[in-house]
């Protein structure tokens, strides 16, 4: 369970996020929607540990926040171009979680299977389409066993007709018990997958 309480963030004395509070229960999907400039991405970056908050509280399972429990699927995926699909997924589990190579490979194959990406283990990111890169990014994040998986605009870089595919995939991951937090400006998509929606608006200046 992810709890965010009275989160506040400013850049150069200009408030970006104010009084953001929500609770995301295990196994649920929450979407955060709003126009660009509303601080959605900043909120995700704070939850991912890439940005500091100015005040407020973030708890995971009622414990002090630990960025290691959050996985992130970036808007442009940020796969490592010098590593193939399998290496992208197994790098962190072997180096950080100290899993054996066999164990990490086995898990990676399972994840790729689940995401219908089998057979692409030895391909490099440049050989993949946007949708395929996204699946690899999801597998890479899941291999670190996060409590919560965050997505930054998962539909924005994809063909419109792939949106349904992403919906199906995200709902499929939900069935397996994954807790997901999704930043999007695509309202239709957000409504289709969300158990809970949070709307953020740009804060007026002054």
């Amino acid at each position: 369970m992810l709890e965010v309480k009275n989160l506040y963030k400013e850049f150069n004395n200009r408030p970006i996020l104010k009084d953001i509070s929500f609770t995301l229960k295990d196994g649920e999907i929450m979407t955060i929607v709003g126009p660009s400039g509303a601080g959605k991405t900043t909120l995700l970056r704070i939850i991912a540990g890439l940005e500091t908050k100015d005040s407020g509280e973030i708890l995971i399972d009622s414990q002090a926040y630990d960025s290691g429990k959050v996985g992130v699927v970036f808007q442009d995926y940020n796969l490592f171009p010098n590593l193939n699909v399998l290496q992208n997924i197994t790098l962190a589990p072997t180096m950080v979680l100290k899993e054996s190579k066999e164990e990490a490979n086995k898990k990676a194959y399972e994840l790729l299977n689940r995401l219908q990406m089998n057979g692409r283990e030895k391909q490099y990111p440049y050989e993949l389409s946007g949708g395929q890169k996204q699946r690899v990014a999801i597998a890479r994040a899941l291999a670190m066993k996060p409590r919560i998986l965050c997505y930054d605009e998962p539909t924005s870089a994809l063909d419109p007709n792939l949106r349904k595919e992403v919906e199906k995939m995200i709902l499929g991951l939900k069935k397996s018990g994954l807790t997901q937090l999704i930043i999007t400006h695509d309202l239709q998509f957000a409504e289709n997958v969300a158990d809970q929606m949070l709307k953020v608006q740009p804060l007026s200046e002054g």
Binding site: A48, L50, S67, G71, N78, A92, M144
Partner: peptide
């Protein structure tokens, strides 16, 4: 090197040394 590479490495909890040797330096060499 794209800032996103460092951020991806960070959320995967790779430390600075691992990020440099496994991801950044191989790309820089090329």
């Amino acid at each position: 090197i794209d800032k996103g590479q460092f951020e991806a490495a960070k959320v995967l909890r790779l430390n600075r040394w691992q990020t440099m040797t496994q991801i950044v330096i191989p790309q820089v060499i090329k």
